[in-house]
Write a protein that binds this DNA or RNA. Sequence first.
DNA 1: GAATAAACCGACTAAGTGGTCTGTCGACAA
DNA 2: TTGTCGACAGACCACTTAGTCGGTTTATTC
Lengths: 206, 206
Amino acid sequence: MDKNLKRMATMQRMQVTGLELFYKQGYYNTSIDDILKELSLSKGAFYHHFESKEDFFIQIVENLVVRKMYSMLIEPIEGPDNPLELITNCFENALETAVHNELDFGFVLGNFLNEFNGRNPKIMKHLSDIIKVWEVNLVSSIQRGKFNGYVNRHIDSEGVAVFLMSSYIGIRTFMVENAPSARKYRFMTQIRQYFKSIATKEGAYN
Amino acid sequence: MDKNLKRMATMQRMQVTGLELFYKQGYYNTSIDDILKELSLSKGAFYHHFESKEDFFIQIVENLVVRKMYSMLIEPIEGPDNPLELITNCFENALETAVHNELDFGFVLGNFLNEFNGRNPKIMKHLSDIIKVWEVNLVSSIQRGKFNGYVNRHIDSEGVAVFLMSSYIGIRTFMVENAPSARKYRFMTQIRQYFKSIATKEGAYN
DNA sequence: GAATAAACCGACTAAGTGGTCTGTCGACAA
DNA sequence: TTGTCGACAGACCACTTAGTCGGTTTATTC
């Protein structure tokens, strides 16, 4: 039991540091030795716990990335309230975290999607699965919104989802670079503008 | 003169193939040997023409990427017509190219932005400069639209630009992965929806 | 046709890379 | 006390990487 705890602790440490470095430097540009140096651990330790670099990365995705994704972008939009409000607040919070915490892993996914696209189908599968969950949740959120009279019935829910995901991925790529706070503000204003155009008159969005 | 022509031809060949591979596999994941094998050229040839891998890449950006960027995303939105129409058509075309031609380099920039972010400031500088040109052109296009009565005066031009750029970067990341044509269609529909909401009544957008 | 210089070749180097393997060490069970 | 086993150490391997360098080819110029 105690042994198992130690095992878990070490693996966790490796994964956390791994994600941090993969995020900052990219997967292909980060060596296992980089991670091990950071932790003062050895090759032996690494390959005792993980099969390969790829296996290691997939475990990071399944443990850390998925969880962050759920807590930051999926759970906050569940519920019977006006989905346009929920999504606005959710993006607002997620982007705020991104502004203040360079290492929020709220959307590492965008980076990795880019890095593995057409290069590593196995890893891509894991990443797309997460995106799919996000998409499904967005779509059903919008549909609930239609049902509850918040969202205009003529609007294509799938379309809204694709559009929202695209914008979010884009702004995240974009915010890292320059004046993140100003860009966040501008982005959110336009999201509200867009939402107004797909809301019902009665729904009272904003 | 002829010598110079040959020099240019070889350099061009290297750059074209280089961009293709860097785009497909990523910069850090593509070796110079990969490129040279493709061209049946030697290390000597490469280092005779370019200082380093980094220098090589920067030249690719300055030659090929900048040009594509201008022809696909900047020039098409210049002109006195309704900028919302111009941008719609521009995105439509750019995304159509993306759907049919896996190697359209219309927005390699998104990939590279991601790959070099926080990793290689020198290269990032070159990439951000291009983005800045795009941004400036979008902003002035929107402002022209306001002036000419196509775009609502209360709208923040900078905001629209940031929002458009984000969405475009996002959809490009997103389209490569799955059902690009359907996603393109959905995306464009929502862009039109958004544009309607920032257009003037008289401007007759759509 | 000799001289010259640019274009190109490819063996080489030093520093990594992912991954293997033999081993050490301490906890714990018998 | 001894034996077992999981956590970890780190030397090592085969291979790849960006970049170097002495040399050869090729084309032009006089």
